[in-house]
Design a protein around this nucleic acid. Sequence first.
DNA 1: TCATAACCGAGACGGTACGTCAGGTCTTTTA
DNA 2: TAAAAGACCTGACGTACCGTCTCGGTTATGA
Lengths: 202, 202, 202, 202
Amino acid sequence: MTHGMTRGRPRDPSVDERVIAIARDLLLEGGYAGFAIDEVADRARVAKTTLYRRWPSRDHLVAAAVATMLVQPPVADTGDLRADLLRAVTAIAARLREPAMAPLVAELVAAAARHHDLGASLRSLAAQRRQAAVELIARAITRGDLRADVDAAALVDQLTGPLYYRLLITGDPIPDDYISTLVDGILDGALDGAGPRPKAKR
Amino acid sequence: MTHGMTRGRPRDPSVDERVIAIARDLLLEGGYAGFAIDEVADRARVAKTTLYRRWPSRDHLVAAAVATMLVQPPVADTGDLRADLLRAVTAIAARLREPAMAPLVAELVAAAARHHDLGASLRSLAAQRRQAAVELIARAITRGDLRADVDAAALVDQLTGPLYYRLLITGDPIPDDYISTLVDGILDGALDGAGPRPKAKR
Amino acid sequence: MTHGMTRGRPRDPSVDERVIAIARDLLLEGGYAGFAIDEVADRARVAKTTLYRRWPSRDHLVAAAVATMLVQPPVADTGDLRADLLRAVTAIAARLREPAMAPLVAELVAAAARHHDLGASLRSLAAQRRQAAVELIARAITRGDLRADVDAAALVDQLTGPLYYRLLITGDPIPDDYISTLVDGILDGALDGAGPRPKAKR
Amino acid sequence: MTHGMTRGRPRDPSVDERVIAIARDLLLEGGYAGFAIDEVADRARVAKTTLYRRWPSRDHLVAAAVATMLVQPPVADTGDLRADLLRAVTAIAARLREPAMAPLVAELVAAAARHHDLGASLRSLAAQRRQAAVELIARAITRGDLRADVDAAALVDQLTGPLYYRLLITGDPIPDDYISTLVDGILDGALDGAGPRPKAKR
DNA sequence: TCATAACCGAGACGGTACGTCAGGTCTTTTA
DNA sequence: TAAAAGACCTGACGTACCGTCTCGGTTATGA
């Protein structure tokens, strides 16, 4: 089997937590611009070399820190699709509406564009997050709630994409009823006579 | 009113074009990272001071250059909403799929997050572009093609947002049938029995 | 001819003096080890980049500073060769005996070995210093005080070399009567019956 | 007193040889600057800790390696002083003229200036090497070949010093006849009429 | 045979300084 | 005045190397 031998001095596991926490603080305080490797090292009582041993560049460290701010709670599946989607999208929106989030996500996106490895890992993270929603929809199709020819991935994109679009491109706010509008729009369609909406309870 | 007196050496009007052209080249060659003010000045045979007299920062110059790459063709209104939307979204997607576009847009977004003025002008530009699409939809509502309670802005977001979402966040490609899926999704809805789609012609 | 046009902002001439003076101070305070480029820049109120524009490396700056410590007063030619040589060698020894000189010269020598350009300039400086002594001896030969077949350069080496030898290699002190021993030795020879020395007063 | 008991795993005796050999190679390849502890450890297949267990610092290791390059053949005493000195000085010069010797000695000298203990051991080594020559001269004095008031140490310095002087300071080459000039100069003196030289065969 | 002591390899760690880079300002001469 | 040239300041980056520390594992002695 794999030798799995851990030789040499083991990494101090507390460093990661400490550094990430401090990086997050710094990012929230001063944004991407006010984030300096030396400052992180100082505050975390860690040598700069140690940072570079774990994160190959400033961008990587920032990305790691921001990624921890974007972790999402699991998507519940109650059987009521409209409510489940609303809850899921609302959770994402809540994250994105946090105070300093817009510039951070913007810089994160730019960092991902600069470093291919970073882009890859962020994309896989995004895919993983999307997976839960996709499965939620797949189950709804199985149940017969949704049409069989629905493209689950595209549908999720039409719920999540607008949030990032507003955050990064148009700068428009994301009010609560915007979220429900998104969900309704994707479920009910916009065509007149596309079918009466079966509810009013929201 | 400004006195309008022009004294001293007049600005060389050819500088703007030359610089923007070179900036664009540099961006396409090496992306945002390979874009250095000194390099631009050198190639354009222009002093750095001249650049800073016209654009207050590197980000501003980059934004100006990228902006010239994003001009969109006008949206046609033929009365066939589905076709019109498909055409409009396809035009946007075509731009975004150009080779080096993803990193440029990413950096542009980051630049906008860094500089408020830049953000404002980019956002107004985006709003202006969206306006045509919003009016297209408004007319469709007036015609009775769409339900009256449709939120035009949100609908446009659900068509455009996914494109940027894939470009910047997931990195997924944007195939042609993805675009039609987006349009269909937003028009027809996903609920089973939401009404038979009146199509087959795409 | 060379255009010699000085365009652009001229170099601040005071920087060189200021920096060299401070560098010298730092070297005397803490030796070569306690000499940091950043420290020099700080104290001289100058940006590090400015230093590197003028001296391509730490070693070069150090060498420039140490070189100014080794400037020798001109060699007088009174006609009394023994006295003139004694005076000249004593002057050199005085420099070399200054407190922190030994390690500095050692590091200078090492720096010269590391950088070819530095070595060249230091060697030409040494040659230039030696030139005066060589001419002193040449004149003594012309006067008939010294044998015609004397190798002036080798003779100077036998007066100066031992000083550096003790300073750098053996670490022995350089007392005053050591200097006169050197001069006598080179003039009178060591062989018994090589001729009575014309004096005994030392 | 020291019990002298040897407990625990004994040191691998092959390490010393291996390391010194590799250190020497590295020094010859890249000089002192191109000599890194990690590199030595890598090439010698030895852990850095093992190195530091045996040599307390980089400089000490360098010194140990260089010392093995400087072993001198014993000085013969045939009774012909001029020939004996010529032979001895030629041997030293031969060492110093070896290809990469100049930078090594320079760096070694600097290292000795940085670390007192290193300086002490190198100086004692130098003294020991000089001792043989001093005794050679003492015997010549006893025989009556040299004047009784000759300072043997200074005389040796005037033979050896110039070699190091040229090697380290002036960079001048050390041709063969330079060596004989040194010996003649010190024996015969430079003054005109200091006595006819008893030879012509060189 | 088992504890103990010293060795060894591997590699993380703290620390210090280096040299570089890019952005942006300032100063001078020239048009 | 603008423009060109280039020196200058600022701040941070990423690197290199040093010497220490902390592991797991090895090899000898001595109880």
